[in-house]
Amino acid sequence: MLHAGQYFCVPGRFSLHARNSRGIIMRRAGWRGLFMIGGPVEHRGRLRYIDQCSDTTLVQPVRRGDPCLNLLYFPAGVFQTAHTHPSDRLGLVLSGRGTCVARNAGADARVALEAGMIFCIHANGRHHFATDRGDEMRVLAYHPDSDCGPTDDDHPMINRTIVDGVSARTLAAIRTTGDATLERS
């Protein structure tokens, strides 16, 4: 049973039975994440972001390039620097309110955001978020891709396996070759 503020990742098909509940399902075709249930989502992020905002990666990329799910925290009175992302972003406003200002056909479009709203920012769409002095905002953000995460040649197990004082990462003679993945979708 899930409670308010929780999130989950399911590899493959599943059924969901909910009463008097609201949520959002975000999916990337062909990707199989690791089963997990997390939360409740914290109030502020643990990592520094931009312009006094913070974030926490809730669902980590299993491999570099995989999708991830983040909590974004916008403090009261923030006016972010305009920016873009190389892929689409889906967002769910968890709490608070703010404004998304997006460049659309050469003009700025202002969208008021409040708890429960879902939005999409398309790849390379120039935008920024702002909050009023008395309002902070928390957003659940889905990234369909990432530029971080482990690879076959760079992950904690291989990096921190030491043979005679040397990381196994650099010892080609003992490294597993081929596709070590048990299951691909």
Rank of each mutant, 00 (worst) to 15 (best):
D132Q: 14
G106N: 11
A123M: 03
H128P: 09
G134A: 13
F119I: 05
A115I: 05
A102V: 02
C120Y: 03
A105W: 01
N124Q: 11
F119T: 01
E114I: 03
G125Y: 00
C120W: 01
F119Q: 04
A102K: 02
T99W: 01
E114A: 07
R97E: 13
R103K: 12
V139D: 01
A107K: 02
A102T: 06
L140Q: 09
N124W: 10
T99V: 13
M137W: 03
R97A: 05
A130N: 11
H128D: 13
I118K: 14
V111C: 14
M137A: 09
G116H: 06
A112R: 10
L140T: 05
A115Y: 08
N124A: 12
R110K: 07
D135H: 09
V139P: 08
G96L: 04
R133K: 07
A102E: 05
R103V: 08
R126W: 11
R126Y: 08
R110H: 15
V111N: 12
G96I: 08
M117V: 10
G125R: 09
C100M: 13
G116P: 05
I121E: 09
S95H: 01
V101S: 12
R126A: 08
G134T: 12
M117N: 14
G98Y: 02
A107D: 04
R138I: 13
M137S: 05
G96Y: 08
H127P: 04
H127W: 06
R103Y: 07
S95L: 03
G116I: 01
V101Y: 10
F129E: 08
G106I: 15
A115S: 13
V139G: 02
A107R: 10
E114Y: 02
A107Y: 04
R110G: 06
E114G: 13
E136D: 15
R138T: 15
T131L: 10
A102D: 01
A115F: 04
F129A: 07
F119W: 14
R103W: 07
G96M: 07
I121H: 14
V101N: 03
V111L: 11
L140I: 12
R138M: 06
G116Q: 00
D132S: 11
G98H: 06
M137L: 12
F129D: 12
A115T: 07
E114M: 06
F119C: 06
I121P: 01
M117E: 13
G125M: 10
N124H: 07
R126P: 00
L113G: 04
G106V: 15
I121F: 13
A123Q: 08
L113E: 02
G125I: 00
L113K: 02
T131A: 06
A115P: 13
A109S: 11
